[in-house]
């Protein structure tokens, strides 16, 4: 039979008080002691529950020794003990929250010790995670910033292009090595055989004429070539735009940006004119450097 709270406690000679709390050993998960509130002075003492403890119906706890022995038993100080969750520890004990206490670990009273181990653990955590930050960052960004591919790509035979000042959409295939495999990508560009007037009109400024490496080194200048090639992507948000033969203008179907034949923006949301590409004539073929520029920005910033 279990000891219950409020049970009367008797020694062999006379009654002494009642059970006010139960003490649990977290190691054995058994009740090891009980707290008895003495009738005489209301003092609480910790009494071991052992072979000399007998539980009788009533309920009543009988201590099989004389009352004098209680004098040697320690007083109950609440601060030495902590409440434990009954359900976690002693489902067989039939007691309620707050009735069962366990010894508060002596070592955990020392706050500076706790603080030391707390910071030491954090320092070790930092020693494990911080050295990984840079490698993981480098690992993830590895393929992000590749150098430009400045190879010349054939667009088609120059004599196949229509008469001056009428643009034509040319398709070309690129096979870049992407990471671990060769990929085949189809791309388009608008090519125009340009009249001297148009050439003059287009190649007004440096950005249209001079092409540079990422580090600012010039790699090509569109000079003495009577062809103009525009990147097939609208500078607004990268849509493929079309040529409107009736009105002689380029129209982007996505957000209705409209450009003149010389690439200038007529209307619409595009932030800049059409992007000219480096172009040359070699063996009767029109060749370009397959550059791409960041969409949505005023400046012409090369990304591929």
């Amino acid at each position: 039979m279990d000891i219950q709270l409020k049970s009367r406690v008797k020694c062999i000679d006379r009654p002494v008080g009642e059970v006010s709390r139960l003490i649990l050993s977290q190691t054995t998960r058994e009740i090891t002691d009980m707290v008895v509130r003495l009738d005489a002075n209301g003092r609480e003492i910790v009494v071991p529950v052992d072979g000399n403890t007998s539980v009788r119906p009533g309920p009543e706890v009988v201590l099989l020794y004389p009352v004098d022995r209680l004098e040697g038993m320690p007083g109950f100080r609440r601060g030495d003990w902590e409440e434990v969750e009954v359900a976690e520890f002693a489902p067989h004990l039939h007691v309620h929250q707050g009735e069962v206490l366990a010894k508060f670990p002596e070592a955990e009273r020392d706050l500076s010790r706790r603080r030391f181990f707390f910071w030491a653990s954090n320092a070790i955590g930092a020693l494990i995670t911080l050295p990984l930050v840079w490698p993981v960052f480098k690992y993830l960004i590895f393929p992000l910033y590749k150098g430009f591919d400045n190879a010349w790509v054939r667009l088609g035979k120059a004599d196949r292009l229509p008469a001056a000042d009428s643009p034509v959409l040319l398709e070309f295939t690129r096979t870049p090595k992407e990471a671990y495999m060769v990929n085949t990508v189809k791309k388009t560009a608008w090519a125009v055989k340009a009249s001297p007037d148009l050439l003059k009109d287009v190649y007004k400024g440096d950005p249209e004429r001079v092409f540079k490496e990422a580090d600012g080194q010039p790699i090509w200048e569109n000079k003495g070539v009577e062809y103009i090639v525009y990147s097939g992507k609208c500078p607004h948000l990268g849509c493929a735009y079309r040529w409107d033969e009736t009105d002689k203008r380029f129209i982007c179907p996505c957000h209705l940006s409209i450009f003149k034949l010389n690439g200038e923006l007529v209307s619409g949301p595009a932030p800049r004119r059409l992007d000219t590409l480096p172009v040359r004539l070699a063996d009767g073929q029109v060749e370009i450097i397959d550059a791409e520029y960041k969409a949505g920005e005023h400046g012409k910033k090369r990304i591929v």
Partner: peptide, 18 residues
């Protein structure tokens, strides 16, 4: 053993992290 018991945190956590 009951008298010498310690909480998981902080000393065991420290030993685990070492």
């Amino acid at each position: 053993l009951e008298r010498k018991k310690e909480f998981f945190f902080p000393k065991q956590v420290y030993k685990d992290s070492v």
